[in-house]
Design a protein around this nucleic acid. Structure first.
Length: 433
RNA sequence: GUGGUUGUAGCUCAAUCGGUUAGAGCGCCGGACUGUGGCUCCGGAGGUUGCGGGUUCAAGUCCCGUCAGCCACCCCA
């Protein structure tokens, strides 16, 4: 067998790359609409950038090695530490709120599965310096509008929205202690993937009573803002705690995006650093992994970069998104095509073919011609396979008359055109998309 | 990293109970067709049946190992 790409890494054939380019172009276009500016950092970083705050066990999922200078380095698994460093270095000079996005290729060493490789491209959007709920709504709206730009509507994808402060308040009201909160968060996070009995076991082991455990499951079962607010009304300080979540939902509703949003407290996100709003985007049938996930991380920039700024961000990978687009038939067709194919009748016509092809290319058209002398029919078959919209056929007779034959390959007709007018004629045709 | 499952041509698949030289469609190359594409017809190339070992007169088929894909767990920055 021939050498293949490493497990979890992809070869992009032209059709694959066309889809990837479509995704990256759309990401850039929508982020720009929101006034976000693109930045980037190195794909290779010091290992300690990722281990300093997360601990050594994370090394197991990093592509890390010692470079020739003896430095411990890692391929970037996420963008946030790089972002934190860059923002911290110029924090005083950057106008707030900072709206930045990046399209990094990220790497993680773990066993691959469908929708989950060892390498992927990710749209990373962060809004830094604004703690209020309107910033949260702005960022979620950006994620939703990316979906809409791909042609996906509220029947295709949903935003599952939660707020860790809300969940925390409800859990505390049920009798969960501060020490028990991490265990309770973890149980809520897994509630859809595990049996209730299996989840209750560690909670009991953490010292919770049966009644408190019931309270944990009750909070996780709440769906929709009214149900969550009703539960909050019975918790100390609940009304106050629920205000940001309500504002986020209302703002998204005002933007006309309310149909996409589902309040669901089981969205916890694994990361310990989220402090408030958290959300994930899923396909409506929930057959695929999350398309996008993010949340508010108000303490993280200080921990990573030493600058205390509130922030909210999300990451959206290309792998699950591409699967969804393929599934829904939203992949742009006809990705490769040329404008003009220039065919020679005889070998004596080749110099004229070369001259004309070059003039057309100078005019910005996409042009191909046969690289060996071959029958006209064969050249036109190649033109057809290339999705050319027109062919120019040049033979001795045409040259003698100072003309070329222009064939419309999307239709059937053909007509002689003066050699002096060909370039202008075709340039005009190509301009009409 | 753990457990399960699947590997046949570029792609999608076939091959009876273990039995002759592993086939088909699509795609690709060439021809019919030296002044005209799509269609059609004809021909061709392309396989260490993922890889290695074992059982057997005989292995794509059975057994073991390994690699890879998929599924679940772990994790999801």
């Amino acid at each position: 067998m021939q050498a293949k790409a490493l497990p979890g890494f992809r070869d992009f054939y032209p059709a694959d790359l066309a889809l990837r380019a479509h995704i990256l172009h759309t990401w850039r276009a929508v982020a720009s609409r929101y006034g976000f500016e693109e930045y980037d950092g190195p794909p290779l970083e010091p290992l300690e950038l990722y281990t300093a705050k997360s601990g050594a066990e994370i090394v197991g999922q990093l592509y890390n090695f010692t470079d020739k200078g003896g430095r411990e380095v890692a391929l970037r698994p996420e963008m946030t530490p790089t972002l934190a460093r860059m923002v911290a270095a110029r924090a005083n000079g950057l106008k707030k709120p900072i709206r930045w996005f990046a399209l990094p290729q990220l790497f993680r060493y773990e066993r691959q599965q469908r929708g989950r490789l060892r390498e992927h491209f990710q749209l990373n959007c962060d809004l830094i310096g604004e703690p209020g709920p309107l910033a949260d709504a702005e960022l979620i709206a950006l994620a939703v509008d990316v979906m809409r730009a791909f042609g996906l509507g509220p029947g295709d994808i949903k935003v599952r929205l939660s707020d860790r402060r809300v969940l925390r308040t409800l859990l505390l009201a049920s009798g969960v202690t501060d020490q028990q909160l991490p265990a309770a968060f973890q149980a809520v996070d897994k509630i859809e993937r595990a049996e209730r009995r299996a989840l209750a076991e560690p909670l009991a082991a953490a010292g919770m009573t049966a009644g408190t455990i019931d309270g944990v499951f009750a909070a996780a079962a709440l769906r929709g803002l009214p149900a969550v607010e009703a539960a909050l009304a019975r918790a100390p300080g609940g009304e106050e705690t629920g205000r940001p979540l309500r504002r986020v939902v209302e703002a998204l509703g005002a933007m006309g995006l309310g149909e996409f949003v589902e309040v669901d407290l089981t969205i916890v996100r694994g990361l310990a650093y989220y402090t408030g709003t958290v959300f994930e985007l899923f396909d409506a049938g929930r057959t695929l992994r999350a398309i996008c996930g993010g949340g508010r991380y108000d303490g993280l920039l200080e921990a990573l970069g030493g600058v205390d700024l509130p922030a909210i961000g999300f990451g959206m990978g290309d792998v699950v998104l591409a699967e969804l687009l393929r599934e829904r038939g939203l992949v742009p067709a006809d990705v490769s095509s040329i404008d003009v194919f220039v065919a020679a009748i005889s070998e004596q016509d080749v110099p004229e073919v070369l001259a004309l092809a070059h003039e057309l290319r100078d005019a910005g058209l996409r042009v191909e011609y046969a690289l060996t002398t071959q029958a006209v029919g064969k050249q036109l078959r190649l033109a057809d396979a290339r999705n050319a919209r027109a062919a120019l056929v040049i033979g001795p007779d045409d040259r003698a008359r100072g003309q070329v034959m222009l064939k419309d390959l999307r239709g059937q007709g053909q007509e002689p055109v003066d050699r002096t007018q060909v370039v202008e004629r075709l340039a005009r045709m190509a301009a009409v998309v």
